[in-house]
Amino acid sequence: MHIHRLEKIWLAIGTLMLFVFLAAVGIGAFAMGNHPPGHSEGIKLDPEKVYETPPFDDPRIEQIGDNEYNAYMVAYVYGYSPHNIEIPVGATVHFYITSADVVHGFAIPGTNVNMMVVPGEVNELTYTFDEPGEHLLICNEYCGIGHEYMSTKIIVKG
């Protein structure tokens, strides 16, 4: 098959760039541990029994180390439990979240915190809050008539 010489060069450069991109993304994920959310698999629960299943029977934020916390949260139409979380500046928070009803979002604008909340599954991610202030936490997946009101706050105390 005839391929024009310039097209060969063009495709070679493009393909090379492609592999550089993929390597960057792959090294970021597998060598530096910067995976998308939900990387520890296999946590499943009955979506009808969320409030009876530990740790979600008691949604809370719990200190586990030196300025390190686990947040066990439940998303529901149209809010999050626990509501308005307070943490000190510099806190590292491991968020674990599930849904008591439909699919929701979990996003803190201005940060890289962004994940899906799917009933029957537990999603998780870790974030360190280095700046004091009052972060808005919103649902960014359509969940029903009150979706645009579904939010809470993460208050980082200086």
């Binding site: 597998f30 499943k44 899906m116 599954e121 999603n123 998780e124």
Partner: peptide
């Protein structure tokens, strides 16, 4: 579905 749980990295 990158941001969702239940699928391995």
């Amino acid at each position: 579905q990158l941001m969702e749980p239940g699928i391995s990295p």
